[in-house]
Structure formats: C-alpha cells, structure tokens
Design a protein around this nucleic acid. Sequence first.
DNA 1: TTTTTTTACGCAATCGTTCCCGGTAACGAA
DNA 2: TTCGTTACCGGGAACGATTGCGTAAAAAAA
Lengths: 344, 344
Amino acid sequence: MKYEAVTIKDIAKELGLSTSTVSRALRDSYEISPETKKMVLEYAEKINYRPNPIALSLKEKRTRSIGIVVAEIANSFFSQVINGIESIAYDKGYNVIITQSHESFERELMNVQYLASRSIDGLLISPSSETEDMSHLKHLHERGFPIVFFDRIVDEIDTHKVIVDSRKGGYDATKHLIESGYKQIAALANVEYLSISRDRVGGYQAALEDHNMKYDASLVKHCLHGGLVYEEVEKALDSLFKQKKKPDAIFAAADKLTTNCLRYFKAKGIRVPQDIALIGFSNIDLTELLSPSLSVVRQPAFEMGQVATELLLNLIESKRPVKDFDTKMLQPDLFIRESTSRKK
Amino acid sequence: MKYEAVTIKDIAKELGLSTSTVSRALRDSYEISPETKKMVLEYAEKINYRPNPIALSLKEKRTRSIGIVVAEIANSFFSQVINGIESIAYDKGYNVIITQSHESFERELMNVQYLASRSIDGLLISPSSETEDMSHLKHLHERGFPIVFFDRIVDEIDTHKVIVDSRKGGYDATKHLIESGYKQIAALANVEYLSISRDRVGGYQAALEDHNMKYDASLVKHCLHGGLVYEEVEKALDSLFKQKKKPDAIFAAADKLTTNCLRYFKAKGIRVPQDIALIGFSNIDLTELLSPSLSVVRQPAFEMGQVATELLLNLIESKRPVKDFDTKMLQPDLFIRESTSRKK
DNA sequence: TTTTTTTACGCAATCGTTCCCGGTAACGAA
DNA sequence: TTCGTTACCGGGAACGATTGCGTAAAAAAA
C-alpha cells in the first residue's frame, strides 16, 4: 500500500507557479510578492503540505537526527539516559533513533553500520560488553564522524566522553560495607576490559587497601553479559560460596548483577543482610520496595544523557574539525538501605 | 563538522565508468561484464562504499523503517513490546524508530507528525493516556498510511489492532481476590476513555457481579497519567481510605499504579497483605523480589510486539489497499504471590 | 560478406527540494 | 528615447542512486 504525500510540485501546478517560487514563498523569501506568498501559504495549509525530510536530507547532507546505541532499553539506567538525551535533542530540533545491542557485538556492528551510512548526523554510544574490537567506531571517527561515548568508554578513541566516577562509586560502596563490619567482601562485575568494570573494581580494591584489608582476586568474579543472563550470575555466586572463606558481603558492579544476586539469594533461601550483605550499582526506581530494600550506588543517568547530547550537538554543528576533546565526569550517589545493615 | 561519505560517483570517476555501470555492477546485473564487475566490487570494498539510504528512500518512496510511539520506554511492558517489534523488524530488514509520548498528547502529536512526514513506512502506536482526539491518526489512516494499534486501541479507527484480553485479566485478578476472602475490593485504573481501562475495570465489575458482590463506583478511582506521577496515586488512595467502608484489597489496572500503590503502603506503614491485599497489571521482572512479592496479571508483551509488527509489515507490503482489518487478542497470565495471601 | 544478434556500456530522467543564475516587466531619471 | 533599478519570478543544476532506452562494437548467423 503506497502513501502519496503532497509535494511542492503539486502546489506549483495548482497555482500556476514554478517550484522555485513556491519554495521561496514557503521559506518567506523577500523576492516573492506578499500576494503570492499569501496564496501559496494558504494553499499549502489547505492541502496540509509538509516538506519531505528525505529530500532535504539528501540536499543538505544532514538528517537532523542522532543515533543511540545502548545495551538494553529495558535497563533502567539506559532508559533514563535516553530520556536525558531526548530532552536536549528535541529542544534543538533533532530527532533520535534508538538501537539496542543486547550486549552483542554483532548487533552493535549492524546498528552502527546502519546508523552511520548517512542516516544520522552523529552517534551516542555505550558499547556492548562483548565489544573488544573497536575498529568499526575507529573508522568512523577517523573520517570525522561525530561520536560521543557515555558510561562505557574506550581509551583508544579520542573524542568527547561522559562518565560517572565509577571508581568513587566502587570505593564508597565498599567503604560502606567495611564500616558496617563486613570482612569478606566479594565483588561481581561485568567483563574486565569494560572501562566501568575496571574502575568500579578498582575503587573496590582501593577501599579495601585503604582499610588494611587484603585484596583477594578469588573474591572477584566477572560476568560476560553483565548479568543479563541469570545463569552467569548463578555460576559466579556458586563458585564464590564454594570457597573455603565464604563472603559475608557482595558488591555488585552493575544493575542486572545486583538484582540477579537478590534473585539468587531468594532462590537459595539466603537471607539479606543476615547471611550476606548486598550493595550494587543500580538505577531502578524500585530498590526501596525490594525485600530487603536495597543499598545502591545510583548514577545520574538523566544528566549523563543531557551532557552527552550537548557535547554531540557541539561536534555536529562545529564548523571546523574538532581536535580538543572533553571527558566529563559526573558523581554517583550512595543510598544506604536495609540490605547492608550493620553486621551483628 | 561535516562527514563526507563515498558515493557511486567517486567510484565511477576513479574507474572511468559511468554511474549507471557502477550501480549495475554493484547490483550484479547481467548486463555488466565479469571483469568490470570484479573491478567495481573490489574498489567499492577498498574504499568501504555504502549506498546512501537517503537517496534510495527518495527514489523508492520508502524508507524501510517503521515508527513506534509508546508512553515510556522505561515502562517494562513497553520495552518488552519494543523488543518483540525489533525481533521481527530486523529479520525483515526494517529499521525501527522509537519515540515516547510521556503520556502527553502534545508530545504524541509532535512524534506522529515527524514520523509520518515521509520518514517512515508505517506506524505502531499505543496512544498516550491524554489522547482523546484521534484526528491526527485518522487523517493519516484515511490517506492510506499503514497504522497498527497495540495495547491501547481506538474504536473509531478501523485498522489492525493487537490487544490483550484485558477484561479477562481484570476478571481473573478480581476473582482471585474474591476467592481469597476479600470483601471490599477497590480498583485503581488509568483514564476512563482508554480502551484498556474500560476493559480491565469491566472485568473487575463482571467478576464482582458473578460472585454476587455489589459493584460500588466509589471504589473505582482513575488516574490521569496512569500512575506516572506518584501524587495522583496518593490522592486516589487517600480518598479510598477516607471512605467509611475501607477497602481490604486493591486491584491496580496498570504497571505504575501497582508499584506506586506499594510505595504508598510502605510510606504509610500499611502492611500487605495483612492490612490490604494488592494485585495489579505489571510486566516488571522484579515482582517476585518485592516486599511482599507481588501477585500480578502479566501481559505477553514481547509476543504483542511481534504480532503487531507482522501485521504492520503486511499492510506496508500489500500491493492493494487493505480493507479487511484484524484485531488479535492475546491472553494475559495470572501470577499468584504473597501480596494476595488468603485473608485470615 | 552481409545481416542479425548479443554484449556491455552510457545518457538522461526521476525522486523532492533548494538555490544560483538569469530574465522580464514596470517605473523613474536623464 | 534610453538606460538603470527594483521587484518578481522561472529555468535548471544539484544531492545519490536506479533504470528504461539507445547504441557502438563484437560475435554469431545467414
């Protein structure tokens, strides 16, 4: 079924004018007489004329739309980021195209390829946990395509980046556990090569050392899909609990890891915080309704989306190639609730 | 900063061919000699040529992309629907553009206008709770623009629709409350003119009557934004608890209503299910981790997205105007947990 | 050898819009 | 009368890709 829209030609034909005149009348050019303008404008209104953005894009070599690649929109953190992105983009007249990698490198590649082949003016991306090879993004960046990274960043590509002080988040969470009396603190993180994993675990390690507690690598487990699949969390926790010195607290360094820990404890009849304490990165807005209510490190997701978008639009609208790039760092918030009550 | 992509012209110039020849070589036309083909293909590969989808769209009058309008992607139900949509769309080579109305009519209008002005081939929409006037969609539909409604449908527009048997969902939830011994069952719903509200409350009413319990309109409250803002839920519950016959159970007819009820009870120190039972429509995957774990009516969101997309693609790819429209009805699932334990 | 067919490619129109050049009236001034 | 100005408007190229049609050269058939 084809849908035929009205074009500038239809107006020109009906009114006995040329397309140039109609175009100019619609754009309120000084070269067109007031009467002609009025006539064109009224007729355009009458037949509900809308300029074809596709044709405009072709001519202007810009689409006034930006692309987003996130792991999962179902993840509260990402949906909050997206809301932040939208809030700025719409203000500036940009449209937003959202795609999901589902933590798959292949999907990410597909999405980036599609988006980049001229249907967007710039890209906001938080790479999938599977993504080690960055050449797809590197190529684009080298050819001057505007890219801004948020949350998960890549050292080898020099462009604007927006991150949360993950190290501080990990540090504060761990410090809180230590000060609440926990002694065997395990950490659960996303894959190692991901920037946020390194930093969050780095903060965890620093907090331990600052409090004269030994860092034990066997207490740190990594999950390939960031907890997206329950089984990987189950496996990690199983192995933790099989060790001779069982953990009495867990620091989970990602949203899905945190909730899947809780799911695991519930399934196994392990009580939180009596048997084990739990704190994690999470942006879900139900953490205080959980059983027990969850202590979390919360990221300023909405703000992150806003900042990233502003940076990207700067890149897009800059006249000259940008060579100086910023990395903005936002601060996480620590929320203390029942899941890390002081150890008795 | 402008990003210059490689075009077919660059290849033609470099190889001393015409653009037609290059185009045909790339599309593997029989009219081109094997040697020329090889040469073109290799050079295209070398400079990483990608056809410009904008130019193709202009010529073919189709963009191979579909638009989505939902209230909130942060809502689990919608993000699951979107995943269902994507799963089908990508298989068929369609791209997906997601927009959010945030339950605002104005935002919905903006999004639909943008999407429809020729940048998408079809529309999947679940109108905002504020939307009473459907003329923006009606106009499009009358001009043959493919639209499929899901979840929230509109009687006055005759096109494909995908819904969940909301009446059955409301009926089953209410029946479960009755059979668990609750006597004063209140209902909290989205705005009245929304199809799903009518049906869910309709099911609630039918269940009461089938069990010889009087339907009391004062026990049914509506929230303009479907519980998106906590205050409207607070107000509705306040007024319910001020009545002389206080409810001993609540049936919440939307995701946000359900969780905000829980939030309210927690804030007021009202125990669930001892003081009041709670059951609601919800698609969040944390309901069993809540305190108490939540009895819910769950909708087959992913499947709904798949079915809606299949219907839409049928419309788009149909040669002749479609006059016969389907309304597919999917079945909800009832999950019984602690929040509706039998009354003592 | 001549005619026909096949092969392999180029020309130009097309999609909807903008914008650089022109062009032509009308009018006033010289 | 003639030139210059201003006010309006149209022709046509351009953006990138596809495609119907035309055609030269080569190959095959007569």
